[in-house]
Nucleic acid binder design. Structure first.
Lengths: 209, 209, 209, 209
DNA sequence: GATGAATGAGTATTCATTCAT
DNA sequence: AATGAATGAATACTCATTCAT
C-alpha cells in the first residue's frame, strides 16, 4: 500500500516523507487485516514494499507508529466531521448528524475503523480528541434545554460505547444503515429523549442528508 | 493460586481435576494482572505452582483454557444472578437489579472482570450466555408494556456495552456506586424510560436491595 | 565441546547441570577462538551442540556466562596454584614459583588464557581473586625483608601486566620457557632484586621444579 | 568535533582534507567516549557533523580509519617526545624523561589515550612506532653500561605494559603524579637499577623538568 | 564530494510446544 | 500425571554499506 490516507495527504514531501507515509498507510492496512495485537514490523514493511530496517529509520517501535497512525486518523475524522456540521446549530441535530457521519466515515475506511476501535482500548487519551466535539455538542444541548443529562466523562464513554458497537457490528456483518439509525435513536434516548421524539428527530435529520 | 473459583467449585475430584482447576484459576489471575494479550503459558503454570509441561496434559493451547475459564465465569455469574432474582417479576426491576448485580459481582472479582471484558472482544459468542437472561427480561418488559423497544441482538450488544463501560471505569478508577446507578438509569432510558421515571425506578429498586 | 573444564568438574549433576557446564565450556572455547568481542550466543550453543534457545534456560545474557566462566577459571587456577605451593615459605621462591606456575597453567589451557586476558579488561574485579594470593606473598616478602617495595594495588597491577605480557606473547608465538624465566627475573627486579640475584633465584627455583 | 588534532594539523588542505581530518578527530573522540568495540560509523559521522555516507568517501571501513587515527597519534606523540629530548644524552635520564613525558602527553589527551591503549590490543604493530625510540634508548643505555638487560622485543613489551598500566589507572582514577614517578622507578628496576638508585635517578630527573 | 534514505544480513531474545524421565 | 530441560520458529532490532540525488 504505497497510496493511502497518509500518502495522499502529502503535498510536496521528499522521499523521506513519502516512505514515512507509506509505512503509516501500511500500518493501517495491516491492522485492519490482522488486528493490532498481531501487528508485526515485518508485515508493515512488506506491505509497504520496503526493507525491514527501513521501519527504524522512521519510527522507534510499533507503539510509535500506531500512535501516529491513530492520531492522524483521529485528526482526519475530526476534520471531515467539522466540514459537514458548521451550519448546524440545533444540538440534537448536531449529535445525530455527527453520530451518523462518524459511523459512516469510519465504515467507508475499514482501515481506520480497526485502528480507532483498537486504539480505544490501548490509547485511552486518543478518543479525547474526537470526544471534544461530542462534549461541546452535549453541553450545547443542555444549554438549549434539549438534553436531560449531566455531561460527565463517564457519560461520554457510554455514548462512545454505543457508537463503537455500531461500527463493530457493521464492520463485521456488513453496512446496515438501519443499525446506524437505531444507534442515533438510542443515543438520543440516552440524552433524555422519549422513544417517539428520538425516532422523529433521527428520521428528520437523516432524511435531510 | 491453587485456590480460586474453579478449585473451590470442586466437590470430590481426583488429582487431575485439582490440577486442572488450579490452571484455570491461575489463568484468571494472570489475565487480571497482565491482560489477555500478555498471557503466557509459563505464567499460568508458574502461578499455579506447576511445571511448564503440565499445562498440556489438560489443555490444547491458550485459547482452550481461556475459553473454558470464560465459560466457567459466565456460568458462575449467571448462577449468582439467578439466585437473587427468582422472586422478581417486574421487568424494569429485574433489569435494574440484574445490571446492578452484574456490575457488583464482577467488580468483587477483578479476576473475572478482566476475562469477561477481554472475552467480549475475543470470544464474541461467550456473552451470549449472559445475554440470554437479559434477552428474556427485555422480552418480558415488552410483554408487560414497559419497554418501548424491539429486542434485537444489536440492542443487546449496546446494552452490554453500557455495562462494560461501567465495569471498566470502576475497575480502573475504583468502585463508585454512583456510576452503577447512572448506568442503570441509562439502561432504562435505552429501553424507553423517561429520565425522571428512570431515576425513580432505579432509586426504588436499588434502595430495596 | 561437551567435555571441558566445567563438564569434568561435575560430580553427579543432572541434565541441567551438564548442559550448563557444556555452555560454559563452549564459551571458553569460542572466546579462545574468536575473542570475547566477537562472542555470539549462537556460537556458544552451536559449539555446545545445543539449540539456540537453550542458552537462555541457563544464563541471562553473554555477560553472565562470561562472568561465570571467568570466575570458574580464576577459581580453578587459584586451586592449582595453591596445591603446589603449600610447602614453600620463602617469599621470593613463592613469587617465582607462582609466576611460573600461573603462566604454565594458563598456557596449558589456551581456552582459559583468552578469557583471563580479556577479563582483565572487562571485569576489573575478577583479577582480585588471583591477586589476593600475590598480595599475600608480596607482603610476606616485605616482612621477610626480601622485597624492597610498598605493596599497593598499583604495584599489583604492574606485576600482573608483566605476567599478562608473558602469556600473551607465548600464546601467540608458541611456548618459550625462556620467556617465562625472563618474566620471573623481571618480576624480581620489580620487587627490588638486583639482576644477578634475580637470575640466580630464578635459576635455583625453576631448576627444582 | 570539527577541530581536533588532525584538523589542526592541516596547513592548507582543500575541503576533502578537512572532511577527512574531521572524521579522524571524531573517531578519536568517539573511541575515548565509548571504547573501540562500541565504535559505530554513524557515531563518527554524527560527531563530525557529516552525513553517514560521507565516511565511505574517505575510508574503506572502521579498521582503516582506526589504523590511520592510531598512526597519526603515534606520530604526534613521537614528535612531541622528540622535541623535549634532543639534548639529553644520558640513557637513564632519557628513559625516565620519555616515560614521564609519554604518560603525561597521553593523559593530557584522553582521546589519544583510549585509541593508544585499545590499539595495543588490536593493532600489535602500531606500538612498534613508539617502541623504536624506546629501543634506541635502551640500546644506548646498554652501550653506556647503565642497563643490565638484553634488548629484546619481549622486554620492550613488558616495558610498555608497565607504562600502559600507569596510563590506564590514571585515566580511570584521575591524574596522580606519584604513580607516574613510581612507574619510572619500576622501569629502571626492570632495567637493572637498584631500588635506591632508581629512586634517586627518578627524583633527580623529574625534579629538573 | 557530500548527502542521507534504503537496504538486508546478522544477532539477540522470547515462548509455545515436545518429550524423555 | 507431572516434570522441566530442550527445542527452534518467530520476531525485533542494529548497523555497515550502497547508491541515487
Amino acid at each position: 500500500v504505497r497510496f493511502g490516507h497518509f500518502r495522499n495527504q502529502l503535498q510536496g514531501g521528499g522521499k523521506r516523507e513519502r516512505t514515512r507515509a507509506a509505512l503509516l498507510d501500511a500500518t493501517l492496512r495491516v491492522v485492519a487485516e490482522k488486528g493490532m495485537e498481531a501487528l508485526k514490523i515485518s508485515d508493515i514493511t512488506a506491505t509497504a514494499d520496503l526493507a525491514n530496517g527501513t521501519f527504524y529509520n522512521h519510527f522507534e517501535d510499533k507503539d510509535e507508529i500506531l500512535r501516529e497512525a491513530a492520531y492522524g486518523i483521529a485528526f482526519a475524522i475530526s476534520s471531515q466531521l467539522d466540514n459537514e456540521m458548521e451550519a448546524i446549530t440545533d444540538a440534537p441535530t448536531r449529535v445525530v448528524t455527527a453520530t451518523r457521519n462518524f459511523i459512516n466515515i469510519v465504515l467507508e475506511k475499514p482501515d481506520w475503523a480497526a485502528v480507532m476501535l483498537d486504539s480505544a482500548a490501548h490509547m485511552p487519551n486518543l478518543q479525547e480528541n474526537v470526544a471534544q466535539y461530542l462534549r461541546a455538542d452535549l453541553q450545547l444541548g443542555v444549554a438549549q434545554g434539549k438534553f436531560d443529562i449531566e455531561v460527565t466523562p463517564f457519560l461520554l464513554l457510554q455514548f462512545i460505547a454505543l457508537i463503537s458497537v455500531a461500527v463493530t457490528v457493521q464492520l463485521k456483518n456488513g453496512i446496515t444503515p438501519q443499525l446506524t439509525a437505531e444507534t442515533c435513536e438510542n443515543v438520543l434516548r440516552l440524552l433524555g429523549f422519549s422513544p417517539s421524539k428520538a425516532r422523529k428527530t433521527v428520521a428528520a435529520t437523516l432524511a435531510r442528508a
